[in-house]
Design a protein around this nucleic acid. Sequence first.
DNA 1: CCGCATCCCGCTCGATACTG
DNA 2: CAGTATCGAGCGGGATGCGG
Lengths: 118, 118
Amino acid sequence: MSASDHLNHFCSENICPCQEKCPLSTALGIIGGKWKIPILCALNYDGPTRYNALRKKIKGVTNTMLVTSLKELEADGLVLRTQYNEMPLRVEYKLTENTNNLLPILGNLTVWGKEIEN
Amino acid sequence: MSASDHLNHFCSENICPCQEKCPLSTALGIIGGKWKIPILCALNYDGPTRYNALRKKIKGVTNTMLVTSLKELEADGLVLRTQYNEMPLRVEYKLTENTNNLLPILGNLTVWGKEIEN
DNA sequence: CCGCATCCCGCTCGATACTG
DNA sequence: CAGTATCGAGCGGGATGCGG
């Protein structure tokens, strides 16, 4: 089994189907964007986190971008939003099982990234 | 060993280091962009390929984008350019060992992408 | 055959101010 | 506390034409 066999999952035709809609592009699209990884990383490290805590932890992010990114992650099923109608209002974000399946893959990508940085 | 342990490779501080330079961001930056994956996919499927053949295979790509993407991939050590000074000129591109290490990870991402599409 | 140079557009993202 | 609304800059990417 050559290394190429792994890619044949999504490149099994004479013309690469990745140009159109393919699962790999879907995956990369979901975790793409400037703030997605920092958000996932923060939530993974800290567990359920409140909105403002998240904003303070992720340096440089604005309300606009944090809200937008969180909404997309929620729509894609990676993040769960829980609202507690207390006083004052409390909203917590946490990772879902879908994300837990993704984490080891990102870990592998990290290892690969380390090697290539040399 | 929890799923989280995988991410702790690149998120081992109180404040997520991914916001600054981290190997995961590096990796995603390298394979990011609209045409990187289609190029890697085509080269993986077909082996060493000439410039024009690559351009015909990757539907919709322009000279500008193909050249730019190939140069970046070459600079990042994912693609090797070989020029044969024949008549007419022949230039072939192929994947490097660095890329072969990446392929199984992309395969895993593809599997994850398939599952989340449902 | 294999590119490069230039111009231009849309979309992401940032800054700022405001609200339930 | 947890967001919204709006505006504009910057950059990735597309179109076109030219050069070795």
